[in-house]
Design a protein around this nucleic acid. Structure first.
Lengths: 149, 149
DNA sequence: TTAGGTGCAAACTTTTTGCCTCCGA
DNA sequence: TCGGAGGCAAAAAGTTTGCACCTAA
């Protein structure tokens, strides 16, 4: 992927530098979506084996500060990083741990309601709703539920 | 607190035993609500200093398996354990990290919608919605938002 | 030449595992 | 006495920190 000029610009404004590592991490997040730092690291190392996991963490922090990536805790273990472009809602089953993805439109009503009543601006693409999925409640499986990551 | 007879019974049915540690951990979760394993451990150790953190983890697992307690990831770090009796929704601000609690009734519409369309039974009392709270978006603070833990 | 950035190693935090001992049915 | 439980220590997983070196402005 080509060097991200807007990233270079943003960094420069803050007295920071564009580096191959930063580009690679941003690319990896964009490409993988929902990846843990470890997976991002592995992906980056396929191209640049010398890159250290420390750099991954530092860069993810940086990119998050610049609002270019965001992390979510989908339940257990390591957080998962995505870009804003990646839009959908996660339904996490607290029995089987499966994650169902549904379109963000499902939450428009709730989003408006929360903003109106609590001044809370919901981020509909980066949250995890917990409950019990169709398989674990014994309901019929739908197409949407098959989309488990 | 008195020994929980129904817990003793449930355990016995599965060939397990009731122990002081298990009672203490359950009591601690009930009393504290939203406590991390570490806090639960500290609480238990005020009464029984010899209880090891390992036992806390094992017992929380056990109680979760029995559906007596549940854990939620409110964002970062350690999970927080609660009993079912503790009913409310968490709005986690991903800017300031603050947690706003709102009544579970706010999600009835969504709950029905998710069940109908995806067979997903939402657990309205134990989930965290992420977004940006009133303070961080510059809106007027409401009474609900003041309830930050 | 001077900060920013990276790699490396070590520390740290949280959770899990293995093993041995204890104790109640 | 037999298996479930708990304590302890060590390991594992995930993340952070300190420090020396390197390099682009």
């Amino acid at each position: 992927m080509v060097v991200d000029l807007s990233l270079r610009h943003t960094l420069h404004k803050r007295g920071m530098r564009m580096t191959p590592q930063r580009q690679l991490v941003l690319d990896a997040v964009r490409e993988l979506q929902h990846a843990t730092p470890e997976r991002i690291c592995a992906h980056v190392q396929r191209v640049a084996p010398a890159v250290n996991i420390t750099t991954i963490y530092r860069t993810l922090d940086l990119l998050e500060g610049l609002d270019l990536v965001r992390h979510t805790h989908l339940g257990h273990g390591a957080p998962s990083y995505s870009t804003h472009a990646h839009e959908h809602i996660h339904l996490v089953c607290h029995r089987c741990g499966g994650v169902t993805e549904i379109p963000p439109g499902e939450l428009t009503v709730l989003t408006e309601q929360l903003q109106e009543r609590f001044g809370f601006v919901l981020d509909p693409s980066h949250l995890a709703l917990s409950g019990r999925c169709g398989r674990c409640t014994g309901h019929t499986e739908t197409a949407a539920e098959a989309n488990v990551s």
